[in-house]
Amino acid sequence: MITAERKPLEELIEYVKPYKRILLLGCNECVTVCAAGGRKEVGLLASGLQMALLKSGISIDIRQHTLERQCDPEYVEEIVSMIAGVDAVVSMACGCGVQQLAMRYKDKPIFPAVNTKFMGASERQGVWAERCQGCGNCLLGETGGICPIARCAKQLMNGPCGGSAGGHCEISEDVDCAWQLIWDRLKALGKEESFVEITPAKDWRSGGGSGPRKIIREDLAE
């Protein structure tokens, strides 16, 4: 999922204080799962904002709504009438949702309420860790299902650097060395030979190196 964290209240107050009526818009997808911008977080932020603004003597009508998804035009279309009744929108979705809104509602100021972080997985309740950088050419099949691009600080392709010690990365004791994990897993699978195969320099064009990417499925695209 795409992970995110709420922006500090102070920053959000600066965004909304010039307006009289705003719509706080959540998203039922990734940001709900990582507890950053779902229906509950919309309620919490609306309440917190309302109180913080009241303290500064500002009164704003904060309306709340949560869409099934903000990154799809079909869902964004649902809120035409709501948008018409407000001066600005604060989106609690990831950056994709914010941009989808901005593209559809061109005359309405749209602000992000969260900082979009990374594509991650849940390690345990309340903990999310980066697992994928969307390089566009997945090599997990060769690395025992552990990604050296997302999980190695240097994005090394052929084994660990000298900073790997005791299974940890030199940047922090809390970070596992991705190549140690890869080696352990390959060994457990009896696929040690994969480790000695030299991976050539990666072509980063598929990973955003040649500008914004797009997928076009001919059979689906209209």
Binding site: K40, G43, L44, S47, G48, Q50, M51
Partner: peptide
Amino acid sequence: VDALHIVKAFE
């Protein structure tokens, strides 16, 4: 008890 219950009580 959710965070929202507590925050709402103060609001």
